[in-house]
Each structure stands twice: as structure tokens, then as C-alpha cells.
Design a protein around this nucleic acid. Structure first.
Lengths: 258, 258
DNA sequence: CGCTCGGTTGAGACGGTTCAAGACGTGTGG
DNA sequence: CCACACGTCTTGAACCGTCTCAACCGAGCG
């Protein structure tokens, strides 16, 4: 027994908490309806592959809960994590036959998916959709370049400090101003963290515990820390500008750097 | 004495060799006219700053000749080159008040510039313009992630091999298939090269000369090499897929990776 | 001619990796 | 409830790639 037609007047998206911070929430009402109509949920368990490297991108979408990781792999097995996707982030490579990175579930995730071709057709009918996509792509590009800076010329302790601060900002849902959210949950294991930061699990471990010894953080367990001395953490990151919140006025999209 | 009105029927762009590979050449005739109308040339000498980091982006544009470098600088002076822009590449951060990287002339350059706000207004009137911009931004994002892979988990010799192969592909104007264009011109100095690859000038020098000793390349001078053994150069790069030309069918934009 | 600047070369030091062993925590089966 | 095993994290010690510092070289130029 399928839902009665008039039920569809209210889409499941209307109750979706993710929408307000996401691409789908920043477009006109009628476009929201269209998006709701072609959307379908998917769930993946931790470790499962959403889209393999060099696989045809059949769908794109938005992260409803959990964390996705984008990663690239070299022939000899070395791999680099090129991005993490949190709740309300858009994922998937539009306008291309195949993505050159894999997308995997870094935790259990629920995704709101759109068949890629259908989504692309919507961008043709609704330029505002393409515009929103453009804005978030530009943000991703800024983030990628920031990460190049990190990988190219920062020491491992600096990278880790930046990573922790980035997690703060992303998870803290933008109330970065005050001394709030001083607890960090690292949604990925040491292996992924190492891959993201261009180092090894061993080194991560050493640096984290060194930070704990210096009283910068407190280690609750391997995945959860408290920030005891934010100022010193920022100083350790090697970039003051990170403590400055991004100019939200300019970018309705999302927090910029990282 | 200014040009007579009817002269404007033929825009300077119509004679521009760059147009056919560039963003401005992939849009409709009337949009091309609009672009031509708001375009104005600029020239910079090697080393001059086009747009400073954190400066308001007043204009964007297309590289007509020469090479631009995009770079980010840390408080303590360390800097990372986050991208090179060659002829026909689009430069400048649209839809943002200020760019978070500097754009400088890596050689003498001539640019075809658009006042940023005027350009953005055009994207509103012409969705196709935004679409072309979107495609090239996505390519840039792919390139940035490829570079993250390079910086995050490749050795210096691998990075240098990849860099040389990238130059081959970019300068070789897409006839990468055959054994053609075996000569490389490095358009930047050792310092920039080091910054791009996340290493130092000294190490670059050592590796380059080691490659020469092994008969992989021949050093004509500090900026010009010949590739003597492309197969070994590719093997050295640690990625086979680089020898495969990008699927041009999928992307009318430009060569993808790097 | 001598200055400067970019590139090259050498020697030593250091950061980070590698390899190997140990601790922790968590789930499973007896 | 304990014992066991497995995976992840941690810790230690040796090793190696790359950086640093310094000297040198060569080309371009006033």
C-alpha cells in the first residue's frame, strides 16, 4: 500500500533538519519540491563504499548524517584522504562521467541522493541550483588549496592542530566565536587521520599525547578530546587567521576555509 | 581620437588566438560580444602582483600569454604555490569579496580582464557562462585534489616526475598521445618549483641532476629539459594513469588531472 | 670588473618513517 | 563472568629522506 497522492503535498524534506544549512534549503520553494521529488534516501555502514574510484558517478546527494571520506589511491596502495564530508555537505562529482576519487562511509551514514542525470537536468532548468552548486564548489576549492598549504609546508604538529581546529569549526555548527564547544569528537580513526594529514598513525599518536602532556588538550579516549588551551592550540597551528570566523556575510554557503 | 563606432562590430577578441581554448570561446556569439565589450587588457612584468592575498578581488579574467602563480603565505613567511595558470586559463575568485591566495606574474604576462562585478552580472543574465565557469572550477578542484595526493603521499622524486609530466601535457597543447613534444620548458624558477612541490630548491636540483645522470632527461639549461626516456619518467611518477589522456569526450573544458 | 642573484653541490642535523613490540578495549564464545 | 582473540592505538629504537646551512659557481649587468 503506497502513500495517498495528497500526502505528497508535504514532502519528507519539509521535516528534514539538514535542509536549513544545505544546498537544497537555499533554493526557491518550487525547486525544493522538484528536488524532494527526485530524492531518495540511502544508508551505508561504516567502511562501505558509496562510489568507487573511477566508477561512473550514478548519483550525487547530500549527507544527512554521519561522515563520508573522499580518497584517492596510488597503484602501490598508498592513499590520500582528499576531503571529509559532514552533515549537510554535498557529495558526488556532477558533470563528469566518472569521479577520480572514492567516496566511502567513514561512519554509519544516511544520504539524501539524487540520480545524477536527473539532478543535472534540474540545474539546466533552474540556474539558481547551478549557482548554489557553484558557490559550494568554490568553497571546496578554497578548502582544497588550504589543505595544499597544510600538506606542502606545515609540520606534523601544525597539521594536527589545524585538523583539530577544523573539526571544532565544522562540528560546532558555526558558533565558533565564543569559547564554546571545547570538546572535539574525531569521527575517523588514526589511519584515516594519518592519510588526511599526510603522515602515519604512529606520529599522530605521539603528537597527540605530546599535546596532552603540554596541557593543550585532554584525551578522553582515542576519538574524543577536550581543548584545555585554545589559544595555544591556535598558536600551534601556525595560522592566526583561523581563529577569525569566515565572513559569513559574503558567503551564504558555508564556512570557507577547510 | 577614438575608434569609430562601426569599427566595434569586430571586437579585438575575434582575432584572439586564446579564445578557441578558453572559457570565452565556448559560449554563444552574443555572449562573446558582451564579454568582449567589458574586457580590457592588462600586462604585468615578471614578479609583479596581480591580486594580493586577502585583497578585494576587483577583476577576474583569462591569461592571454605567460604564466600566473597562485600562492598562499603563512605568517612566518613559508609559502605554498597552490596552482599555476597558463594561457587560456581563467583566473580570479568570483562570487567572493576577497581571494585567500595571491596571484602573481610568474613570467611577463598579458591578461584579458573583466571587472568582477560586471562579469558576475553577466553570469546572472547568461546561465551558460556560469555553467562554463562551473566546469572549469570542477576541473580545478580535481587538479587540486590530485595535488593533495602528490603532496600528501609521494616522495620528492615522484613529485618532480609528475610535475614534468604535467608541464608536458599542459604545454603540449593536448597532443600528448604520440611521443611528440619531448622537450619541456619550465616556466618558473627553482624557488617556485620547490614551493609548488612542497620541497626546497636544493632538493629539486639534486633530483633533477640525478635524473639526468640516469639518462631519463637531458638538461639543456636550468629551465629547459629533453625527455629521453618517457616510460621511465612515467614509472618514476608512481602513477600509470597519467600517460592516459583524459576523456576529452566528457569534458569540453580542458585536460582534467593537474 | 665586481656585484648580485639564481642555481648547484657538499656535509651534517633533524623530523618523521619504519619496524617491532606492547597495551588497550571490545566483542565473542565457552 | 572469564578467557581469548582481534583490531586499533600506543610506545620504543633504529634508520633514512629531506632540510639546513654554507660554500661555490656561473650568468647577467651596472
Amino acid at each position: 500500500m503506497e502513500p495517498l497522492p495528497f500526502i505528497r503535498a508535504l514532502t519528507p524534506c519539509d521535516a528534514c533538519a539538514v535542509r536549513k544549512n544545505s544546498l537544497c534549503g537555499r533554493v526557491s520553494a518550487d525547486l525544493q519540491k522538484e528536488l524532494a521529488r527526485i530524492s531518495h534516501p540511502r544508508t551505508y555502514r561504516i567502511g562501505e563504499t558509496v562510489l568507487a574510484e573511477m566508477e561512473a558517478t550514478s548519483f550525487v546527494g547530500i549527507v544527512a548524517s554521519g561522515v563520508l571520506r573522499m580518497q584517492k589511491t596510488l597503484e602501490d596502495g598508498r592513499q590520500q584522504l582528499v576531503g571529509l564530508l559532514f552533515r549537510s555537505d554535498f557529495f558526488g562529482r556532477v558533470f563528469a562521467g566518472l569521479s577520480d576519487y572514492a567516496i566511502e562511509a567513514a561512519s554509519d551514514v544516511t544520504l539524501c541522493c539524487y540520480e545524477r542525470r536527473a539532478f543535472e537536468r534540474l540545474t539546466e532548468r533552474f540556474p539558481q541550483l547551478e549557482h548554489q552548486l557553484m558557490l559550494s564548489t568554490l568553497d571546496e576549492l578554497d578548502a582544497a588549496r588550504n589543505w595544499m598549504l597544510l600538506l606542502g609546508c606545515q609540520t606534523i604538529p601544525e597539521r594536527i592542530a589545524n585538523f583539530l581546529l577544523m573539526l571544532c569549526r565544522r562540528s560546532g555548527a558555526d558558533e565558533w566565536t565564543a569559547g564554546a564547544n571545547l570538546s572535539i569528537h574525531v569521527p575517523i580513526g588514526r589511519r584515516d587521520m594519518a592519510s588526511y594529514l599526510g603522515t602515519t598513525g604512529e606520529t599522530i599518536s605521539r603528537v597527540i599525547h605530546e599535546m596532552s602532556r603540554k596541557g593543550i588538550i585532554k584525551i578522553r579516549n582515542a576519538q574524543d578530546f577536550d581543548i584545555l588551551n585554545k589559544r595555544q592550540l591556535v598558536r600551534m597551528s601556525g595560522r592566526d587567521d583561523l581563529s577569525i570566523p569566515p565572513p559569513v556575510a559574503f558567503r551564504p554557503t558555508r564556512a570557507s576555509s577547510f
